[in-house]
Simulated scan of single mutants.
Amino acid sequence: MESLFDSIGAFVGGVFGLAQGGFDGVNQVMGLLIAVIAALLMKAWKGLWATALGAALVHVAVGVIRPVLDGGAFVLPDLLSLTFWMGVLALFLGYAIVIAVFFLVKSLVTGGGLGHRKAAH
């Protein structure tokens, strides 16, 4: 039974470590701009996961296109490596956290998005 709890603890610790790594990747100027735009475009809380996935994919796309704009060669990331997909998963978790915070602030400022619905009379 202890080994089960140890395994669960190791898994949860790994997920938190991955989220922290993704949060560090998002906590840059480019990542924060992507997160703010994503939070502004998000309509409701149920769209958080799709919005975070879209933001992570935009982050990867900008990372690929940016060197080309600076005069470098077009190089695709190694899509078949586990490290690439772990990085995308970390970005996804980081964007989910940051977009949720920004959307919460947006909801508090605009007065909507927290599940309050006006009664139809």
Rank of each mutant, 00 (worst) to 15 (best):
M1C: 07
M1I: 08
M1K: 08
E2W: 11
S3R: 11
S3E: 15
S3V: 09
S3L: 13
L4K: 12
F5S: 12
D6Q: 12
S7R: 12
I8C: 04
G9F: 09
A10N: 14
F11S: 13
V12D: 05
G13Y: 14
V15S: 06
V15F: 11
F16D: 13
F16Y: 12
F16K: 14
L18W: 01
L18K: 10
A19R: 04
G21M: 08
G21N: 12
G22K: 06
F23C: 02
F23K: 05
F23M: 10
F23N: 06
D24I: 10
G25K: 13
G25V: 01
N27G: 00
N27H: 06
N27S: 10
Q28F: 04
V29R: 08
M30W: 02
M30E: 11
L32R: 02
L33V: 13
I34G: 03
I37W: 08
I37V: 14
A38D: 02
A39D: 00
A39T: 04
M42L: 06
M42D: 02
M42H: 00
M42C: 03
K43C: 00
A44H: 11
A44E: 15
W45A: 11
K46G: 12
K46Y: 11
G47M: 06
L48H: 01
W49A: 12
W49M: 11
W49S: 09
W49P: 01
A50D: 10
A50L: 10
T51Y: 00
T51V: 11
A52Y: 07
A52Q: 03
L53V: 10
A55F: 02
A55G: 08
A55D: 04
A55V: 07
L57T: 02
L57N: 01
V58P: 00
V58C: 03
V58G: 01
H59N: 13
H59M: 12
H59D: 13
V62N: 01
V62P: 00
V62K: 01
V62A: 09
V62C: 03
G63C: 10
V64P: 01
I65D: 05
P67T: 10
L69G: 15
G71D: 06
A73C: 01
A73W: 05
F74A: 12
F74Q: 09
V75C: 02
P77T: 06
P77A: 07
P77Q: 06
L79K: 00
L80M: 11
L80W: 10
L80T: 11
S81M: 07
S81F: 06
S81P: 03
L82A: 15
L82I: 15
T83L: 08
T83C: 01
T83W: 07
W85P: 01
W85S: 04
W85E: 08
M86C: 03
L89N: 02
A90Y: 02
L91E: 08
L93I: 05
G94S: 03
Y95R: 03
A96K: 05
I97G: 01
V98Y: 00
V98E: 06
V98K: 02
V98R: 02
A100H: 05
A100V: 01
A100L: 10
F102Y: 14
L104G: 15
L104C: 08
K106D: 06
K106V: 05
V109W: 10
G111D: 11
G112P: 00
G113W: 04
G113V: 12
L114R: 09
G115F: 11
G115Q: 04
K118R: 13
K118W: 10
A119G: 09
A119V: 15
A119I: 14
A119K: 12
H121V: 07
